[in-house]
Each structure stands twice: as C-alpha cells, then as structure tokens.
Simulated scan of single mutants.
Amino acid sequence: MNSNMQSAQDLLQLAWQAQAAGQLDRAIEIYRKTLGLQETAPAWLGLGQCQLERKDTQAALAAFRQALALMPQSGAIRHMVDMLDGSRVPDRAPDDYVVWVFDGHAESFEAHLAALNYRGPQMVAGLIEGIWDRDGSRAILDLGCGTGLNAPVFKPYAARLDGVDLAPRMLQQSARRGAYDHLYKAEAHAFLRRPPCRYDAVLATDVFIYIGQLDEIFFISDQYLNKNGELLFTIELAEGAQPVELRSSGRFRQTDDYIRNLAERAGFVVVVTHDEALRIENGTPESGRAYRLVRR
C-alpha cells in the first residue's frame, strides 16, 4: 500500500469521527483533503452527507454522483442520487440502503425516535383500542419490526407475534425484548410472498415510507392474511399531484387517494384512519396518517 493510500484511509477515519461528532465544517475539510489524495466512493459519500446536513443539496447531489460513478453497483448511493435529483421515483428504497440507514444506528435508534417524539405505534394502537379484545387470540405480524417498538403495545392481543426486518442489528435489538415468538431476517415483499402462516393482522409502522409503490403488498394479501384479516399501517402523507413522492430525506410519501384507490382495487375496506404528527423533524411536525384496513 503506497503512502498516499494509507494517508487517505487515515484521513477518512478522522473525517468519519468528525462527522459523527457533528463537526461538519471540520469533516468537510478532511473529506476534501482525503479526496485530494485518493478519490473513493466512501469519501465522496461522506462529503455529500455532510453537505446535505448543511442543507446544501446541490453540493450533496454532486458528491453523491461522484460516489455513484466510482461505485455504480451500489443501490444505496443510487437512492441518494434519486432523492435529490428528482428525475426518478423508484418503487422502493434498495435493500442495501435500508440496512445502511438502520444497522448503523441500531443501538441508539429508540433514543433517537424518542427525541423526535415518534408516534407510530401509538397511532396504530389507537385504531384498535376498545375494538380488539386483549385475549391473546390473534396471529400478528410486525412487518419491518425494527427494534420491536410495537411488541409491548400489541403483545396482549397476540397468540403469535412474529417480526420481520431486513437489518440484522435491528433484529438483535428486537430479540432482546423477548416478546416475539419468531423473528425473521427478510425483505418485506419476499417474506409476504411465502409467509410461515397466515396472519389475522399485519402491522407496518414507518415501513411504507421506505416502500413507495404498495401495489404488490396490497394485491398479494390473500397469501399472508386470513379472511377478514387486517392491515394496519402509517404513512407520511403527501398532498401534491403525484400519488407517490420521494423526498430529500430518502423516504416516500403517499397520498390518501392513492391508498384508498389501491385498497378498493385490492379488496380492502378502509375502516378508520387517524391523523397526527408522526414525528417532529428539524422542529417541524411530519404529517402522518394511520390506517386500519380489513380484507373483504
């Protein structure tokens, strides 16, 4: 290994440390020095992330494009270009992007959500409060279970509570709760096509923000839901002309019309919805909507 490569790797470590500490100006300076020695996708990616945190979206996009040119096989970097470029709305976030986002913060994830006043589980639980009996009779799937925030809320209703997630370190956090009967590492679509059983209810809190197009999940419901089975979920609510939007956060929004039209075509009845700020992000409430759908 030549001295430039070694120096670039050492600088990259320093840049990551500065970025993690919130020292964005210092991190940007070090990333640029790193790139002066050796152009690598991780250095361009880190530089782009810092610039995005500083709200300089054009500089961030330019950096992400440089990273993608060096690592064109990366779905994660492609998604970061898409979320800022605006010319393409993919069906969902790539698997490597989802794992990268969540596994890197698994240990601090719940503290982070608490700081954002995240309300997903409470919003969905409110839809069935006083309607479902707490008799432990239902087979429930927690789709995209993450660290298991839904488990203590829905365990009293469940004869079987399963969780599935793509990020292995998030599943480790879920396992520590001891509330799930089974935990599976899988992508949502792949799991729902061949589930271990049919469920009485499927929960998806803060999951569809990473799956923009929901057609397949709705239309294959006969493969994972019992008759009169329920789909309970949250979305970030879009209010524009496009039924599905990809935001600069890397997350998707859907319109209410999109959800209702899709539900009707896929054989669901929209029983009830509830609107609430899903989280407070950068001081601004994020408009959310929770849905309770029943399969006809």
Rank of each mutant, 00 (worst) to 15 (best):
V207P: 02
R292N: 10
R260D: 12
M83F: 00
W44K: 14
Y97V: 08
I259L: 02
Q13W: 00
R295C: 02
P196G: 05
A62D: 13
M80C: 10
D10Y: 13
R251T: 00
Y224S: 10
S249F: 07
S108V: 04
L84I: 06
I128F: 04
R265Q: 14
E187G: 12
A188W: 05
A59M: 02
I217N: 05
A93C: 06
F218N: 12
R247L: 14
A175W: 05
Q19F: 14
R78H: 07
V99C: 01
R289N: 11
G144Q: 00
E264K: 13
I259M: 09
A139D: 14
T284L: 14
V272Y: 03
L84F: 13
K155D: 00
F208W: 02
H79T: 00
D56Q: 07
Q223Y: 01
R65W: 08
V271D: 11
P121S: 03
F154W: 05
D165R: 01
R119D: 05
G75Q: 13
S137Y: 01
L262T: 15
R26L: 15
R194D: 11
A15K: 02
R253D: 09
F191N: 05
P121F: 09
L141M: 06
G22D: 15
Q172K: 07
N261C: 04
G46T: 09
Y210W: 11
G22Y: 14
V124A: 10
C145N: 08
V272M: 02
R176P: 03
Q242W: 07
Y31M: 13
E230W: 00
D222I: 15
A139C: 11
C145I: 01
A76D: 12
F219K: 12
T57H: 15
L225H: 03
E230R: 04
A60I: 06
E107T: 03
L52P: 01
A106G: 12
E216Q: 07
L113D: 06
D162G: 00
A93I: 12
G104K: 11
G136A: 01
F233C: 08
L203W: 15
E230N: 09
A93W: 05
L192E: 12
D10C: 02
R194F: 08
L14C: 09
D206Q: 02
G178H: 12
V269L: 08
A43P: 14
A106N: 04
Y118M: 07
A139P: 06
V244F: 09
G267D: 13
I28N: 07
C145Y: 10
R26M: 10
P152T: 03
L113E: 08
A111Q: 13
D215L: 01
R279P: 03
Q172E: 15
T34A: 11
R26Q: 15
Q213C: 07
G22L: 13
A106P: 04
L61P: 10
L246G: 10
S87F: 03
R32W: 11
E216R: 10
D85R: 06
F191W: 06
L14Y: 03
L232D: 07
Y199W: 05
A151N: 09
I128C: 00
L149Y: 07
H112Q: 05
G163Y: 00
Q23N: 15
F252N: 04
P94T: 11
G267C: 11
E276V: 03
K155L: 13
A241G: 03
R92D: 11
L192M: 09
L116V: 01
V294I: 15
A238Y: 12
A15P: 09
V89D: 12
